[in-house]
């Protein structure tokens, strides 16, 4: 499927197969949740960790909803995965489409780009990663970060990193996801980076008897 088709698919799911919730309620609840975490842990790096953990738990369940509602075919490579996350995933859950920037560190034959799992699991494989540039971020609407939180290194939307990591893990992609910049911190853009660690082996479920 092409990028354009993903876009149409995402739009379609958002319009016809998504129950909506008030965005103000959503944004404010997330904000209040983060504030509660800050109060409870008094430590911004711990808050980042907790948000990531929550996100992970959300992601591992969200992927099921995603697959059930979209009928997406299998991604052919990690590049494809990035496009689907942005055009379909973000669209259907947050009604926003981040820009995807692919980073492929070394030049390699295009046809081998990750479509072969055995090649990808070898160490010599160039790093595969992409960045999601969030031009709009529903989570950070109405948010202003106090200097204290900025210095403490709070990644406001860190839950998203966890969601992506959790969701991808459920489809046999081990990844690391982390924010590298955030407009709330005074950066020029909000960038979430996702790096492929390896394709995980499909595990057979334990036998019934």
């Amino acid at each position: 499927m092409s990028t354009k088709q993903y876009k149409t698919a995402g739009d379609e799911v958002w319009r016809n197969r998504t129950d909506k919730v008030s965005s103000e309620l959503f944004t404010m609840t997330y904000g209040a949740l983060v504030i509660q975490l800050i109060k409870d842990y008094q430590d911004y790096s711990e808050v980042n960790k907790q948000l990531d953990k929550m996100g992970y738990n959300i992601g591992t369940r969200l992927i099921e909803d995603f697959l059930a509602r979209t009928n997406m075919p299998r991604c052919t490579d990690f590049r494809d995965t990035g496009e689907v996350i942005s055009k379909v995933g973000f669209k259907m859950f947050l009604n926003t489409t981040p820009t995807v920037i692919h980073h492929n560190r070394s030049s390699m034959p295009a046809d081998a780009s990750g479509s072969n799992p055995t090649a990808a699991s070898q160490n010599q494989q160039p790093q595969q990663e992409f960045s999601l540039i969030l031009e709009e971020n529903p989570l950070s609407e109405f948010v202003e970060m106090p200097p204290d939180a900025r210095e403490g290194g709070l990644w406001w939307s860190n839950v998203l990193a966890g969601v992506i990591r959790g969701a991808l893990e459920m489809v046999q992609l081990q990844t690391t996801a982390y924010f590298v910049s955030d407009v709330l911190r005074g950066d020029e853009q909000t960038e979430l980076r996702v790096r492929l660690v390896k394709f995980m082996e499909e595990e057979a479920p334990p036998a019934d008897d």
Binding site: T29, G31, A32
Partner: peptide, 14 residues
């Protein structure tokens, strides 16, 4: 208690 507090903050601002 935590959930209620989160709700209260949201409710007030909303």
């Amino acid at each position: 208690a935590r959930l209620e507090q989160v709700g209260a903050l949201v409710g007030a601002n909303l």
